[in-house]
Design a protein around this nucleic acid. Sequence first.
DNA 1: ACCTGAACACCGTTCAAGT
DNA 2: ACCTGAACACCGTTCAAGT
Lengths: 230, 230
Amino acid sequence: MAATREPISRRERPAKPALTRRGIVDTAVRIMRSDGLDKVTMRRLAQELDTGPASLYVYVANTAELHGAVLDALLGEVDLAAEEAGAGWREQLVQVLTSYTFVLFEHPRLARSALVAHPGGENYLNLVERVLGLLSRGGVPVGQAAWGVDTLLQYATATAAEHGTREQDPAAQDDWDALTRAVHDADEATHPAIRAHLPALLAGPDESRLTWGFDVLINGIIHTPAPLEG
Amino acid sequence: MAATREPISRRERPAKPALTRRGIVDTAVRIMRSDGLDKVTMRRLAQELDTGPASLYVYVANTAELHGAVLDALLGEVDLAAEEAGAGWREQLVQVLTSYTFVLFEHPRLARSALVAHPGGENYLNLVERVLGLLSRGGVPVGQAAWGVDTLLQYATATAAEHGTREQDPAAQDDWDALTRAVHDADEATHPAIRAHLPALLAGPDESRLTWGFDVLINGIIHTPAPLEG
DNA sequence: ACCTGAACACCGTTCAAGT
DNA sequence: ACCTGAACACCGTTCAAGT
């Protein structure tokens, strides 16, 4: 038995792979999928990669940049094709945006960072290109399309950040309960409009509401000229 | 000299005031104004109030709830009046929303939490009431107004979170630079639409763009019936 | 009931020193 | 150039013990 042992100096350890930016980001994505973005920390990542946190700073500027890289990796899952036979540009646009929203829905914490740290990665650029192309095909003037793409993606991102499901934390539920109570307790005398809009005001954010939001924006973008249009 | 000394037992200390929720939130607001939301931590707050962090948990459930309270305190600054003589409902609505956005603009980190932790405080409720009232006055159907108020406030909040100024951190600048470079480097072959929309695509988020966004949403809300309208 | 000290279990980031 | 150990300066939250 002992004869089969390798010399200690080259015992078969898991052969710690060389550190690369790619490997770091991939590991970060894996941690996020299994444990959520909260756990994608320099220390946890270093532990997973069998090194110290300081080593990561050779490949990654800081935690924010790392999260940005994770986000762009995730955007690779967005379905940009949406080429249903005969579908018009509007239907295709809504499909692409819905796909984007659903991808972020699984990771609301990431959606929150997407709102602040403007992505700028390759996959994000492809998404912008696709949305602009569809608006263009719909005859939307350049100025309106350029500002419109931002508004559309912002709406999708914010909705995912707001109503995302992954971390079904009970705190979010408490929040919602508190709001429901506050709205229901709203006085007829001081808050008549809230009472008048009550049922719809508290309707949950389902897919029909998401689609309505996209329609609102598309209609608005079409019908609202940008100032100083060039 | 020594004769003027009080007995040690009642030496004039600054008379540490009793802990109250109100006092805690006020102190939190003060810290945020001077040092930003990042510094509004349980430990810093405890230090400022001359106690230990554990004591705060008698009055505040956790950090998220505390930040929510700070947010609602800040919303007291929103100008809900906006009663320019002869101004129509649309102009007043845009004014109220602009005031809300400007308040959050000073505190983008807080805007980010507002997006997630739905407020539900008194000041937030008053804002919702005001916006609903104005939409109502504009003849917007109940279902569209109820969903519309959410969309409008979400746009305002997300814009503040995205472009807020307070913490002019250089990281945000780097981000923007990276995006600018990525967009400029976009290939004519692979990203023709980005190139075609180039100047407007990178135009900064000034007030005219904010107003355009409000107009887009208001136009869209007016012209997009909600499904199953009741 | 309210308050506290102390502890538990973490963070991001830097830096001098090694290879 | 890349990697590391160790340190610095923090976090949120809980809990047993005190008043």
